[in-house]
Design a protein around this nucleic acid. Sequence first.
DNA 1: TTTGCTCGTGAAACCGATTTCGTTATTTGT
DNA 2: ACAAATAACGAAATCGGTTTCACGAGCAAA
Lengths: 339, 339
Amino acid sequence: MTLTTTSPARSTYAEIAEKAGVSKATVSRVLNGDERVHPDRAASVMLAAENLGYRPNRAARALSTGRTGLVAVVIDDEPTALSDPFWGVVLAGISRVFMANDLHSLLMVTPLDSPDGAVAHYLEGGEVDGAIFLQVHKDAVIKKAHSQGLPVVLIGRPIDADSDIPFVDTDNVGGGLQATKYLFDRGCKKVATLTGDLDASAGIDRLDGYKKAHEAEGIEVDSDLIARANWSFESAKIMTLRLLAKHPEIDGIFAANDIMAIAAISAIQERGRRVPDDIAVVGFDDSLLSQTHRPAITTVRQDIIGLGAAAAETMIALLQERNPEVEVLATEIMIRESA
Amino acid sequence: MTLTTTSPARSTYAEIAEKAGVSKATVSRVLNGDERVHPDRAASVMLAAENLGYRPNRAARALSTGRTGLVAVVIDDEPTALSDPFWGVVLAGISRVFMANDLHSLLMVTPLDSPDGAVAHYLEGGEVDGAIFLQVHKDAVIKKAHSQGLPVVLIGRPIDADSDIPFVDTDNVGGGLQATKYLFDRGCKKVATLTGDLDASAGIDRLDGYKKAHEAEGIEVDSDLIARANWSFESAKIMTLRLLAKHPEIDGIFAANDIMAIAAISAIQERGRRVPDDIAVVGFDDSLLSQTHRPAITTVRQDIIGLGAAAAETMIALLQERNPEVEVLATEIMIRESA
DNA sequence: TTTGCTCGTGAAACCGATTTCGTTATTTGT
DNA sequence: ACAAATAACGAAATCGGTTTCACGAGCAAA
């Protein structure tokens, strides 16, 4: 014999209506804040609902209004995507805001390759009220969804400038500028950079910040000091060794993420130079790595929870047919040992 | 003027019924695989559905069947929880399996402190068909949900042994055993361990594996060599320095995660000893850190995607009222430089 | 040939909230 | 004081599937 207590039977409008001596229509009006109900009746409905421990049935509401209260959160399923702690934190930010607004996030981890794939079907089917996209490589699905009128929010600036899809992003340009300027302020004369993947806006923008810092300083950008890596340890290590061989006078490196900063330090030390005394290194992300690594990495912190929250708020604005403002979140430099 | 194409009007049973010249009831039977429909009719229904590009309306189905096709995935919202890449990968595993089975995961990142909090309401309200819990500290909510008959799956072994809640877990005992045995096989004579939080099953079990390895080797466990840390870099570093001071003869350390392994290495090197020559170190998790750190960490790999997938499959079994088997996933040792 | 099944099917009820529409009671305008 | 407008509310239709129930056809047993 199992001891499973069955959950208490759920109450419905019909029961509330009976208890309060009104019709279902009136119950609906009261519970949806319609002003035109007599205060006394409204009060008795509220009381009855309270006493019955009423909880609305989402499916029923969805059926009659056509809105589900569900927002898809789609991650392009590269094997490694979610192993980046970044996305987990973004998810947390999204989820918090949604839960506070009686919305739910439907997580879809799946390849976005085909505009007719499984995700596309889900997004079309009216199963969700909107979609937030993370880590986008192919945007066909997104454009399709957007053109069909589904509210869509991107995390990260879209690459084609003429896109009118709402997005939220970290101020990567500002962050790159902060990092590079910090190196100059520290006395560096020759600052190189290890870029991320330049097909992604984060990579492009951080490099852009690096260039802007040179401009501000009145220093010509030497394209020889720009090493195109791809976020990975290996690529960054190879590029750093090459940089050092060709330009031994380099005294500062801005790496577009922390992993590459660590790779750079590793390469620098292999060549018998010291960090930060001979060469100062700044990373990006304020990852756990940057805190635990020795020397600890000076890095650019972004507000990741805030990024998720901003995305969720943008979605809420869209759902209410308000015009969302593009949010670009500020960064902050965390000074540690490597620079 | 906006160019928003509206999505194509969705077709319904009524339209299919008309086109195929049958009733809605028959359409329902065919589309749900009821055998008792004449094959000819069935075929014409299928054809009509195909032509109309029919997609079922989840809300309508949920309303009439009482099942939503949604499973809550609940993460106890410690600030740091989702910054651990582990959970992101688990989510990916869950999501994949669910999407292949026409289920959806509803992500809830929220504190689980009160058994009457927001989550509890959602879980009670019939809004989801089941719930998978990650990273559990307080289990009141879980027990409540389970006792009300909601299908529940835990990731990680529950701490109280008499719980009858289904769970999936990594074989932490086996992993601890593998790691410690490897150190013995390598010739270590005196192996210490840095434990995780011993309030969590992962911490307890990995320590248990450490003890089992001693048993197998016929070596008495010296409780002085068991240093209680709490997964963090700082705690592990302090404990390692203490261990080294008190027992300079230690020649191997099993750390219950990679971060603590790195901390141990850092402490060892500060004391002027070499890794792995003087002291070999093994970690746990096969995290990115363990791969990029120098020396690279020898560590125990767990199948995290598989863990998520197993949880999802257990949930599916529960939803089909089959008896799920408890899954405990094997680990694998990754030999690198630190041991 | 009649009784009793089973089989295949459609009409209609149903799930629970929303919304339209019409009715009654009250107020406003002249 | 009477027509017209307005406010407050309930009955019933609606959303799109699922499920019950009843009915007729076909077939076997008697």
